[in-house]
């Protein structure tokens, strides 16, 4: 849209006479000034609260700063923090936890979300009710969701144990969030519950944009439902799937509330995600230089993932994909 507007101006200017062109460009300048004035508050906010602090995080990551002892001198240490972090096992662990959560959650959400979207992509009664219940897990505070699942998973009086036991799926109660064997999966389960409905919603909206005649034509050509899914639905849904995946991966990179409240990152560090680890280096160990270095790495990771999605896989750049 911006490009069409941008090209419209020179064309229009080219048509008018020289005298009017000068007036047009004066008008154009007034218009540009007006536009810049309108975006100024938003841009100032974004710079002051996001981009400047980000630059400062990079700067802090080159220092050795310990806030625990106020009189500890701050030392400029170049890339020592990064060298140290990259050799820290707990950092590797956090990366590995985050990667596993990302892969498993994303795969489950896409498959389940697609299934749900395909099934409810038709006219039926109680649409509003279904839509509202889909939105509940999405709208719910993550901390509250974590609390709910903590209670559900509880080893003795948790309802998850009772249901599975009553259905003869398990023969004894399991400590879902305390045992290293289950914890990560329990956390992933809670995450899938919270985000699958949203993914389904996005995919459903994408499905509804696919013209019905495509399926009719395919049916006339003798395509099976399976074939039209692979040949029509999936390719046309590709942009939606890529955008949804990108959003979800970035969310996992930010994952903090869920492990902190549900498992405390434990047992041991079994569910300590990248953000939780960074947070602890910063605000538990009060190592601000080192913590900033981890934060920088986390940021670069998000940038890398976004870059791969947008440039390599060709995902439309986020939500303004509509061609702004």
């Amino acid at each position: 849209m911006a490009t069409t507007q941008g090209t419209a101006a020179p064309v229009a200017a080219g048509v008018v006479t020289a005298g009017r062109r000068r007036r047009w460009s004066a008008q154009g300048r007034a218009e540009a000034r007006f536009g810049l004035l309108l975006i100024a508050p938003a841009m100032i906010t974004i710079f002051a609260v996001a981009f400047l602090p980000l630059a400062r995080t990079f700067w802090l990551s080159l220092w050795s700063i310990n806030l625990r002892f106020a009189d500890t001198p701050r030392r400029f240490v170049w890339f020592e923090n990064f060298a140290q972090i990259l050799q820290t096992e707990r950092f590797h662990n956090a990366l590995w936890v985050t990667t596993r959560v990302a892969i498993v959650s994303l795969a489950a959400e896409l498959v389940l979300g697609m299934l749900i979207a395909l099934v409810i992509n038709r006219q039926f009664r109680a649409r509003g009710l279904v839509r509202a219940s889909v939105l509940v897990p999405w709208a719910l505070t993550t901390v509250v969701a974590a609390r709910m699942w903590q209670l559900i998973y509880q080893a003795d009086y948790g309802v998850f144990n009772r249901i599975l036991y009553d259905l003869f799926i398990i023969d004894s109660y399991k400590p879902w969030v305390i045992s290293p064997q289950f914890t990560l999966w329990a956390m992933i389960g809670a995450d899938i519950w919270k985000t699958t409905p949203f993914v389904a919603l996005l995919l459903l909206a994408g499905l509804q944009l696919i013209p019905g005649d495509l399926y009719e034509a395919a049916a006339i050509d003798g395509a099976s439902a399976w074939q039209s899914f692979w040949r029509i639905t999936l390719p046309l849904l590709r942009p939606t799937i890529l955008v949804a995946s990108l959003f979800r991966l970035i969310d996992v990179a930010r994952m903090f509330d869920l492990p902190l409240v549900l498992t405390g990152g434990g047992p041991g560090f079994a569910t300590e995600t990248l953000t939780l680890y960074t947070y602890r280096v910063l605000f538990q160990n009060l190592q601000f230089g080192l913590g900033s270095a981890v934060a920088v790495l986390a940021f670069l990771l998000v940038v890398l993932v976004s870059f791969i999605f947008i440039k390599v896989l060709g995902a439309p750049a986020g939500r303004d994909a509509r061609g702004v």
Binding site: V49, A50, L52, P53, L54, R56, T57, L60, I250, A253, R254, F256, T275, T278, Y279, L282, F288, G291, S292, A295, V296, A298, F299, V302
Partner: peptide, 9 residues
Amino acid sequence: FPGIAIISP
């Protein structure tokens, strides 16, 4: 942006 990237400054 991950919020954690700007929390220290």
